[in-house]
Design a protein around this nucleic acid. Sequence first.
DNA 1: AAAATAACCAACCGCCGACAC
DNA 2: CGTGTCGGCGGTTGGTTATTT
Length: 224
Amino acid sequence: MDEGGGKYKRGLWTMEEDKLLIEYIREHGNGRWSRVSKITGLKRGGKSCRLRWINYLSPTVKKGDFSRDEEDLIVRLHKLLGNRWSLIAGRIPGRTDNRVKNHWNTHLSKKFEMKKGKNKFCSSSLSVARSHGQAVETQKVFPQLNSIVQVNNIDSNGGVNSRPVVAGVDSLCATDTSSTQVTQQPILSDFMNGDFWFWDDHSFKSLSSILEYPNGDYPPHFVL
DNA sequence: AAAATAACCAACCGCCGACAC
DNA sequence: CGTGTCGGCGGTTGGTTATTT
């Protein structure tokens, strides 16, 4: 490959280049990006073609401003997942990881990013409620999560106790680390470290593995 | 009106994992 | 196994546009 060398053009794409790329994809489908320049004569590397298609030319890309709902979802998912932009974008129809990332960096991070260290529980968006009632507020925001999980607590030794809980995005998380609420939710910190697992009869599933199922198409064993 | 600064965002870069050979 | 290629990801850059001085 010669993506960074002088063989390929760099910088903003022209309309003519866009046309060539669209024509290529119409005929050959997307993928096999490294062939684009050979077939079309386009002086662009495979990576550049892929990025241009995914982030701009694809008909699935939603252009225009982010809605309040989308912003809210980004903020909550970012709290939950950190800078895993592709995963976040995967939950927001039509938005690409690059656009979500840019929007976060330019608009949202200043507004919403929590100060780290002072209140770790508040910076987590996931809580564990001991009843559906406590999770109701969060279902409006992130219905997929609440609908799929019934989990058991994992104790400090890695064992599973039998107390069922419902996990969800919590907009009403504890604001004070000294409150008793914190001590009642010992597994929150595990969650934040990415070590939280959902138990579904015979196997553990990480939160991120569940989120990777698009559009709520979870395997049957996750559905309550 | 012009220069300086800030904000925005498309595109690039380096790294990594999957895969084929 | 090792090597090369490709596609995907997150971090970063730099050009353009908007705003402020």
